[in-house]
Design a protein around this nucleic acid. Structure first.
Length: 210
DNA sequence: AAAATGATCCTT
DNA sequence: AGGATCATTTTC
């Protein structure tokens, strides 16, 4: 497969720009079990100390959020609701704790390994759709857990690449999911997804669009 | 030391 | 629509 790996310069920019440009890119994990690849179809931006939905709100610096404060292009992985992991890419420069949460992938390669990790016994249209259509589902399918916390995405284990293809698509922006506690920020359209893609975590209905 | 809180998932 | 489930953070 031909692709162009994204590195520091790509990540250390405006977070909303990075979020939108991540759509259509390939997330690749070279693990001991094998290689898995998924196309990014849904993301959310979490933008620093002023964003009430961000783990770094008001500059909160803990063992968990530490990596957010470093340079862009590193993996921010955290555990939520006990068993589930979420994978984010750190954006912007040192001292700016901003990230993009990867919320859904379209499975591209290593589907059998993904199914095995997800506990599915066979690949059908139904199970393929359930492989990576959610932030924690994709972590399970891709073999991403806390052991990869802080890993450099400019390396060869876990990284994002631009595929050598020229497909175009429309981007839809909506409010972020499950952040009702975030006050006014819950209305910001900081969730981005590829229009009409079947692998997003939650479909966007026409009547919801302004 | 104890309580509160989920950037979710799965089943009903 | 609700329960599971437990690491992480916050509060006392």
């Amino acid at each position: 497969m031909k692709y162009y790996k994204l590195c520091r310069d790509f990540y250390e920019r405006n977070t909303l720009a990075v979020a939108k440009e991540l759509l259509g890119k390939y997330l690749i994990h070279n693990s001991i079990e094998g290689i898995t690849v998924g196309k990014i179809v849904e993301v959310e931006a979490y933008i620093g100390p002023d964003d009430p939905a961000s783990h770094a709100y008001k500059g909160r610096y803990t063992k968990r959020t530490k990596v957010q404060f470093g340079p862009g292009g590193y993996a921010y992985i955290y555990q939520i609701y006990g068993k589930n992991f979420c994978f984010n890419v750190v954006t912007q420069k040192v001292g700016m704790p901003e990230v993009v949460l990867i919320r859904a992938l379209e499975p591209i390669k290593g589907l059998e390994l993904m199914a095995k990790r997800r506990g599915f016994f066979q690949l059908t249209h139904k199970t393929i759709k359930e492989l990576t259509n959610g932030p924690s589902k994709l972590c399970q399918a891709m073999g991403i857990d806390k052991s990869l916390y802080g890993i450099d995405l400019c390396g060869d284990v876990l990284f994002i690449a631009e595929p050598n293809l020229n497909r175009t698509f429309e981007i839809i922006a909506t409010p972020r999911i499950n952040i009702d506690y975030a006050g006014n920020a819950k209305h910001y359209n900081w969730r981005f997804l590829i229009k009409n893609n079947k692998f997003v975590s939650k479909p966007v209905f026409e009547e919801e669009r302004k």
